[in-house]
Nucleic acid binder design. Sequence first.
DNA 1: AGCATAATTTGAATCGATCCAAGATTTGCG
DNA 2: CGCAAATCTTGGATCGATTCAAATTATGCT
Lengths: 352, 352
Amino acid sequence: MAKRPIRLADVAVEAGVSHGTASNAFSRPEIVREEVRERVFAAAQKLGYAGPDPRGRLLRAGKVNAIGVATAEPLSYFFDDPFARVVMSSITQACDATGAGISLVSAVNQEQLAWNIQSAVVDGFIVFCIEGGSRLVDLTRERRLPFVALDYGFDDDSISTIGVDDVAGARMAALHLTGLGHRRFAVLSLQLADVTAGAISWVEADKAVYAGTRDRLRGYAEELAAAGIATNDIPLYETDNDWPSTAAGLEHLFAAPNPPTAILAMSDKVALHALDWFKARGIAVPRDVSVVGFDGVPEGLVSDPPLTTISQPMAEMGRRAVQTILGFDGTNRRETLDVALTVRGSTAPPPV
Amino acid sequence: MAKRPIRLADVAVEAGVSHGTASNAFSRPEIVREEVRERVFAAAQKLGYAGPDPRGRLLRAGKVNAIGVATAEPLSYFFDDPFARVVMSSITQACDATGAGISLVSAVNQEQLAWNIQSAVVDGFIVFCIEGGSRLVDLTRERRLPFVALDYGFDDDSISTIGVDDVAGARMAALHLTGLGHRRFAVLSLQLADVTAGAISWVEADKAVYAGTRDRLRGYAEELAAAGIATNDIPLYETDNDWPSTAAGLEHLFAAPNPPTAILAMSDKVALHALDWFKARGIAVPRDVSVVGFDGVPEGLVSDPPLTTISQPMAEMGRRAVQTILGFDGTNRRETLDVALTVRGSTAPPPV
DNA sequence: AGCATAATTTGAATCGATCCAAGATTTGCG
DNA sequence: CGCAAATCTTGGATCGATTCAAATTATGCT
């Protein structure tokens, strides 16, 4: 009397037809004579059949019609992180348009992550590369499914990627500030490599393992040099993209005799933390010091003051990512999208 | 020379072992002699085998280790709607803790929705009931998997649900306002049934099809009556939970000779729209009129003024939903959680 | 009725793995 | 060296459906 789940075969027997017919009644009802179809449905009803099990179907069918979105962060990252949310929103819109579903796959635990990636039933992956991106990308590559990495921080042209023009973005940020008349800068960097170092030199910067970080630093340096500012005089502080390291960086920078009037922050998160730090210190932004972020997250709209930043085309990135998976043709696409300067309230000419 | 995908069987042949052994090499490596295991891996490598296909495994295994989250809205609802986001965040946290994955399943198109639900490879469903909840619940029920409906608006005890004590919440809102001294109220309701009617009577209200709406209305009525306010004198306006209908409702209410000093809004969304409408009209909140919302979405924290509201325990709802699915024991749970009054800046004593 | 044609139904093969009882090898030890 | 115990390997059964060529039944027409 064990309640073994009902299979299509059971229904077929009950209805007195072959499995082939029973299957057709469900998945191609039009080719089964009405009377028989009714009989099959009645049998299903009587037995409490839940309908064809997708697992069986999937095995036969090939296409899953779902795309996996992976990251090495906790799953809640997708709903808590502003950047992720905006990109996910556009990914889901693109999926809606084509009827594809979404599987969220992630885990902080390495082993669990590997397992989750290996067992995700999807047609392809979109990979959010935060930290540990390379490990995640390797895992995904193993599946030999179409996949695309978003903002992948390494030079690797064996995979599809969608990124932004970091050099150009950084130049825009610097140009905006030099245009306003600033001459004393400081850079709040993201990580150059796996370990965070605090205050660093431009020589190290140029050798950064993470390509995104390196390119942004290069952009800043180039543009500042073009404005006749000696790059080596510009203090550089590497943060962990969080509050403690940002605060530590600012302590360090503003302890110096001639503090900067302009901060180039390499992420909005760092920039927003900087705004908080300045407010706590009674330093007025943008009167005393200007801040430019990088990313363009929605939070920057409602901060006090609203954040001037370099906006990534997040919606476009999501859209293209879905296109890349759904329209995969066997070749790797490497797209570099343009960023734009968004001027809001955190920048102004330097104090006189 | 067609590039047929490599199967485990191919690898077994190449390595000169049985498929049983090849399978073990991957899924229970410890029981295979090292030398043989290496041979199998080498063969896999050589053939470009992507690892055991999860579809095959799934069919055999039973458990999927993923839970489906369904709604009849577009997929992007999960990332755009504040209520959904908070609940999803806690759902994902609970999933992370147990290593379960998440599949987002949805579609506005009815047919597509049905198909997506039928073919989702999951162990159970959490259903977000917005509108058309009953259709969605029926579809889900068909799968005969564990599932739980969030804020399901109907009386139906054949399924598991997680909801809040709407009557108590509404009473709290009303009590807060009567305690402040208000005597002239108006209610901005959500839908009573499938069609929206605009201004309605309390007699109709008591017969609302949507149980959530009905209970909140009852709560308001009870508490107001307890304060000696004649319920029938209180204007009631049914909105669509959007801007146009909210604005229309307020036009209507404030065109009356003796406009209310307190608005009971049945959702934060409506309440927030009301705040906008008052601002546009130059009516000061809370000086001229007080507003109490219902839901407790994060937006209410940053509105101007911050919204006084009845907070639903969104995180708790998410957590319990996951528990209900993962620990399903064959019985339906019907949980009603408590709500709490959150006093912020949109309420004050009435003008003298 | 007789026959060609169209509409249905059948049943075996297949999708890609895992599991397990039984058989084959190794190892340990007197 | 021989035998029991321990360790590996094997191959068939199974998970739950879909598919398709072949067989069967129905329909149309003279």
